[in-house]
């Protein structure tokens, strides 16, 4: 770890000004990912701007602004801890998928530390990314991708590139992708709103960039629009260990059926599949208006996965995410959430 200057931010605008003006500065939130990276040498900032005490720690039921789609919803401050967000009564009843995803992630201790904004900004757990003695384009652009032809169990099956084949590790992000959340971002030029699907990006030829945010832009809140589907939503995380393990694959889904049992509204997002939470729009389209039978869900997933590229180590993800999606949609039809 380099020697560090440390500043505790008094307000969000000041924090943004400090970091955006210094390419070697980083925001410090809950620290669960950044402090790890400092020790591993993965991140080598010279300046830390501590935003963890900024008063962005409220969960409020609000009328959302027009550029977040309007209507009733929830505004979650970026510093709300993962444990508090998962336990919030409004989230548990109106967006159960968000609670479920948070509770499936990390451990009780880490959920007390990790913040909403930080969870979204966490970086991949690819073993090569975390090991500075190996080549990794995300950590060191142009050095190569060790994961191609190497340890593949957690690698992406959709949207990868020749430069990077890793996945995004967050559970929360998968849930937020499924409920059409909006991310409120403060930059040097003021505030903007980013639809959740546009926050994270595919690796392409710039895998060092996880998100579409510019250096120094700070997530201050996440807005969740209310919907009938969001209130009937859940999350399944398939993993080796029963707890405290990253996903092999995960499925966040929200479902609303009409009186005839046909799909009136469905949102499906996948984790462990791609460099970003993968919103399965093709599968959703295939299911709208139809009865979500096992066969139909499998066919919809097959459409979504048509471009999947796998290796021996991660080929299982294609049948696994399909089966997990079948399972989740069946559970939601049975009223479980």
């Amino acid at each position: 770890m380099r020697e560090l200057d440390y500043h505790r931010a008094d307000d969000a605008a000041g924090a943004v000004a400090l970091v955006s003006g210094d390419p070697e500065a980083s925001f410090l939130g809950g620290g669960t990912n950044l402090v790890d990276h400092l020790k591993l040498g993965v991140a080598r900032p010279r300046v830390l701007v501590d935003i963890s005490r900024l008063p962005l720690d409220q969960v409020e039921e609000v009328e959302l602004p027009g550029d977040s789609g309007g209507g009733p919803g929830l505004r979650v401050g970026a510093n709300v801890r993962n444990s508090d967000l998962a336990a919030h009564p409004a989230v548990r009843s109106g967006w159960p998928v968000v609670s479920r995803a948070l509770l499936a992630g990390a451990s009780g201790q880490l959920r007390h530390q990790a913040t909403t904004g930080g969870n979204l900004m966490q970086r991949t757990r690819c073993v090569y990314f975390q090991d500075v003695t190996t080549a990794c384009n995300k950590r060191e652009p142009g050095s190569g991708c060790s994961a191609i032809g190497g340890y593949a169990r957690y690698n992406a099956v959709l949207g990868a590139s020749e430069h990077c084949v890793t996945v995004h590790p967050s559970d929360l992000a998968v849930a937020l992708a499924a409920v059409d959340a909006v991310v409120v971002v403060l930059g040097p030029d003021g505030e903007r709103r980013v639809p959740f699907e546009e926050l994270h990006r595919l690796p392409g030829d710039a895998p060092e960039r996880d998100t579409t945010l510019a250096h120094g832009e700070l997530i201050t809140a996440v807005e969740l629009p209310a919907s009938a589907a969001a209130a009937t939503s859940t999350y399944h995380k398939a993993r080796d260990r029963a707890s405290y393990a990253f996903a092999l694959v995960s499925v966040a889904a929200a479902l609303e059926l009409d009186e005839a049992g046909r799909v009136a509204d469905v949102r499906i997002a996948w984790g462990g599949i791609a460099h970003k939470p993968w919103r399965a729009r093709v599968a959703e389209q295939a299911l709208l208006g139809a009865e979500p039978t096992e066969e139909r869900v499998a066919a919809a997933c097959a459409d979504e996965l048509a471009d999947a590229r796998t290796s021996e180590g991660n080929a299982f993800k294609v049948p696994m995410v399909t089966a997990a999606t079948q399972h989740v949609l069946q559970s939601l039809q049975g009223g479980r959430r």
Binding site: H236, A238, D240, A242, V249, F316, M320, A323, H327
Partner: peptide, 9 residues
Amino acid sequence: VHRWTGEVR
């Protein structure tokens, strides 16, 4: 063994 995901407990 989970009939969908194969998870083993």
